Simulated assay, not measured.
Amino acid sequence: MPRSHRRRPESSGDDSFERLLAGWKRTETRRGVEWTVQPVSAAQAQKQYTCPGCGGQIDVGIAHVVTWRADGVLGDAADLAARRHWHQHCWKVA
């Protein structure tokens, strides 16, 4: 198979570092419930969502977090299907 002679776009170090950090999941406990929290970078935010904390819109291109129950009470598939997108500041005060 012949090789492609096209130049591949070079990504900046900051861009790849942001993508790496954006994928890091963590577990937090809120009101006795364990939650998985995954940051979404501005570059990864491709859809509009409604924040359950304030009821406002999270527009395309706005960094935010996605949360879902980590305790598996309803089963992993159901917990993941019930995930919600929050403004970062709304999640911090929830």
Rank of each mutant, 00 (worst) to 15 (best):
G61E: 14
A45F: 06
R7D: 15
R69G: 02
G75K: 11
L80P: 04
E10C: 10
R84P: 01
D14I: 13
Q44C: 06
T50Y: 06
A81N: 10
V37H: 03
H5T: 12
Q88N: 13
G53T: 02
S12R: 15
G53W: 02
R6D: 09
A63S: 13
A22H: 07
F17G: 09
V93G: 05
R6C: 11
P39E: 06
V65P: 01
E28V: 00
K92D: 01
V37C: 12
C54N: 03
L20Y: 02
Q38W: 05
K25D: 00
C51A: 11
Q44L: 14
L74W: 04
Q38M: 09
A63G: 11
T29P: 10
P39W: 06
K47D: 02
W86V: 01
S16D: 03
A45G: 14
K47F: 04
M1H: 11
A22L: 05
P2M: 08
H89T: 03
G13T: 10
S16F: 03
Q44P: 08
M1F: 11
L21Q: 06
A70W: 01
A82D: 04
W24L: 14
G23V: 07
C90V: 05
V37Y: 02
A77M: 10
R6F: 02
R69E: 01
W24P: 09
G61Q: 08
R30Q: 01
W86Q: 00
H64R: 02
L80I: 06
